[in-house]
Write a protein that binds this DNA or RNA. Sequence first.
DNA 1: CGTTGGGTTGATCGACCTCAATAAAAGTGG
DNA 2: CCACTTTTATTGAGGTCGATCAACCCAACG
Lengths: 256, 256
Amino acid sequence: MKSSLGSIRNEAAAGVPTAPVLTLCPNSNVTVDCATCRVRALSLCAALEPDELQELDRLASSIAVGAKERLFEQDQPSASVYNVTAGSIRLYKLLPDGRRQVVGFALPGDFLGLSMSERNAFSADALTPTTACKFSRQEYSNFLDAKPHLLRRLHSMASHELSLAQDQMVILGRRTAEERIAAFLIGLRNRWMRINGNQVHVPLPMTRQDIGDFLGLTVETVSRLMTRLAREKAIVIVPDGVRLLDVPRLERLAEI
Amino acid sequence: MKSSLGSIRNEAAAGVPTAPVLTLCPNSNVTVDCATCRVRALSLCAALEPDELQELDRLASSIAVGAKERLFEQDQPSASVYNVTAGSIRLYKLLPDGRRQVVGFALPGDFLGLSMSERNAFSADALTPTTACKFSRQEYSNFLDAKPHLLRRLHSMASHELSLAQDQMVILGRRTAEERIAAFLIGLRNRWMRINGNQVHVPLPMTRQDIGDFLGLTVETVSRLMTRLAREKAIVIVPDGVRLLDVPRLERLAEI
DNA sequence: CGTTGGGTTGATCGACCTCAATAAAAGTGG
DNA sequence: CCACTTTTATTGAGGTCGATCAACCCAACG
């Protein structure tokens, strides 16, 4: 057997898609209005002046995808880049034998395609109904060439992403299961805070399996430890999320 | 006890430096000559025209650091960025309790400071005598503003780094110890190949402890598995490195 | 109202860690 | 060049955290 790791059980084997690929979407190509965009301040577009925003407007199309639909797939040519405006997305890599590593979750304000590379480094499935601004990668790349300060912001977002990835390396390489869960909850809370403001309620649009595949743990371990944190009054498990009761305790565990 | 993970034993506790901090270096501020630089084709500078190279020449100073000296330290303000010209460097993060995660190894041609951020995200110790081109971060940043195609290349290098970090997340989250070692050796061979051309000999300037802290394993596990791979004729352990005998087998294990 | 996907809980197992001892290099000073 | 220390690597014996295997619960849904 493949030893300790993996998440083969609830997945189809060997790279077989588990979510329907995004086909034609009724809401595709809806007009975009950057001026009234609610996530603009959080997103890449914050780097732009009003007139530049109008230019970008013309390049964008709005898309909506239902829960469990796939936006794009690992190793496929990437035709588009996206700016998430609502919803949540799972980003993951599959090994040939079906083991899965979730490399991140995209939330409103996040940009997909930071690397502007020819092929997707990972797959992306919507976890909840999701909307995004969609751009042709080529057109966006040309736009970048004309707007160095936008490139600067793209690079700064990519750098931030790199820094998060390195933090995740510490979590995966050197932290206990309990610390991983705590770090995950605190990290997610901080991200929701930027979007919704300070909240004790942390929405968890992903399954336990997704969390496990993000943290290098099994579903069972995630479930057990969340239950334990709840029993110890550090959190309360509520439908579609958790409520953080003892943030200092969790932060101590996560020790960012 | 802290459970499974960590590398506290051979390290001083709680963030106490284990390597001397780089102070005054005899070879500092030696004149740089980009025109004859042997790693230019591999490095960021490859994006520059001859006249731009001369401009950069004037911003650069050459530094040399001995083995085990520290280039810079996690969380400290980052005054400089570096282009490694020779040697090898360990990049790592420390947890407050002394656990360590090596986030990468820098080799000739690598750029340190891709994120151009205010503070260092990790510490950097030379593993072997190392030389690098050193730039003021501020001056380099200004230079970038004037040269969008250089920024483009910086971003492309940062994207590549992000992609490597995500691959490392798969390794740390979902691979067995044996697979991690194989992936490490194959990955390092591929990097040396870009520098020295195709070689069966893979130099390992880092200790087993460093490898363990990179792969989320203990020294003992690294040693045991390297010995096993040697016993099974996949590699030969030689002074300061390994010789790869059965590359296909290792690649199958690493399954990139 | 059966079916299905997600979540929880228990019993057991095993990959890798921990602890311990020794061996082999690599400095270091006389 | 050789004692002596220090660092790094190897090997063995035993322990444990999280994985595996297996029920079971519950809500959603056609």
